[in-house]
Simulated assay, not measured.
Amino acid sequence: MRRHIFNALAVAALGLIFAAVVADYGERRFLRPLAEFYVTRTSVELGSPNVVSGILAVWRGIDTLAAAAGLFTVILLMAANGAEPPPRAASASPEPPAGEIAETGAALLLPPLLLFAAYVASSGHLSAGGGFQAGAIAAAGIALLVPARPQAALPAGALAIAASLAGAACVVSGLSGVLFAGGILDARLSSKSGLGAFLSAGAIPVFSILLAVGTGAALSAVIDRFRT
């Protein structure tokens, strides 16, 4: 009885808290100073009409690089701890075939997903997209192979190498801003006259593609590792 009373009081308290938040909520008519800086200066200084990509790649590039480094560290630790699955017992029954639906679905969906991931990575500076999103889309396509081909294994070593090289290239692209622009992770390496062009926004497309390769390789390795 006491437990039910406590739960009811806890729910009522949370309800009051959320009610107070909703009562005080109001749409802002003006941007905060920092948000206004991002919105007004991204297209002018970086040459990217996508404000979010400009924030992630340049204005908050250190945070993005740290998040990517964390993801790449996970795959390296997994590779160091042994990426090979445990051996199957001799008496274990073989896994049943996936079936025609799973195999056909993977064959039909994997190429379009990989193509869409390449588009999202290469055009993230122009429209919605970016490296993390593209890597997740590519890994989703790889995940289709798990039910379709349960006995097939992804090249864990190659994925770890790809993630490592992509991470190192991200760092190099960031440091190139010191030599060719205004500072570390400064993507202002090309002319700003090509706003909206495919080859524009300096190093932002390069940074997004490298993030896509590293993220896709890391997530694919995680999928292949934990399916066993």
Rank of each mutant, 00 (worst) to 15 (best):
G99M: 07
S43R: 15
R28G: 00
F132C: 02
S190I: 08
P33S: 09
G54S: 02
A160V: 06
G105P: 05
L71G: 05
L115H: 10
S123T: 11
G124E: 03
G82L: 09
V74T: 02
F198T: 11
I161V: 14
I161L: 09
G61I: 00
N81M: 09
A138D: 08
Y25C: 13
L126G: 04
E95L: 15
V44C: 01
L175W: 14
A169K: 06
L189Y: 15
G54D: 02
I17Q: 10
R2L: 11
L76Y: 10
L114H: 12
F226T: 05
L189Q: 07
V58E: 13
A138G: 12
N7D: 13
F132W: 08
V44Y: 15
A67V: 06
G183A: 04
H4Q: 09
A98Y: 02
H4V: 10
T73S: 09
R28T: 04
A66K: 11
L175N: 06
N50A: 00
A13F: 13
N81A: 11
G130D: 04
E27C: 04
E95Q: 14
N50R: 13
A89K: 05
T215K: 02
A203W: 12
F37R: 15
T73E: 03
P49M: 03
A117I: 02
P49H: 07
A197W: 12
R3A: 14
I137M: 06
A80P: 01
T228D: 14
S208Y: 06
P94E: 08
L199A: 14
T104V: 11
T64H: 07
A68T: 05
F30Y: 10
L159D: 02
F116W: 07
H4L: 11
A163M: 08
S53I: 01
A57L: 06
V172N: 03
S123F: 05
V11R: 11
Q151E: 10
A169D: 09
P94I: 09
F132D: 03
I223K: 02
A90C: 06
V21T: 14
P96N: 13
H125A: 01
P85T: 06
A79P: 00
E100V: 12
G183L: 08
G177A: 04
A107R: 10
A12I: 07
L195M: 04
G202A: 05
A80H: 04
L145D: 00
R225I: 00
A92F: 11
E95S: 14
A10Y: 04
T104I: 11
L76F: 15
R2K: 13
R41N: 12
P33D: 03
L211E: 11
W59G: 01
V74S: 00
L46W: 13
G124R: 01
R227H: 00
A181K: 02
D186R: 08
N81R: 08
A8M: 06
A158I: 04
T42A: 08
F37L: 15
G131K: 04
I101C: 14
A128T: 12
T104G: 05
L210A: 08
W59I: 01
V120G: 01
S122K: 05
P150V: 06
A148Q: 03
A139Q: 00
L195Q: 11
A218Y: 14
G174L: 00
L189G: 06
T228Q: 07
I184S: 14
S43C: 07
A138V: 01
S93I: 15
A57V: 02
L211S: 10
R227S: 01
S220Q: 05
G99K: 01
F226G: 00
S43F: 13
I223V: 10
I101N: 13
G99W: 13
I55W: 05
F18M: 12
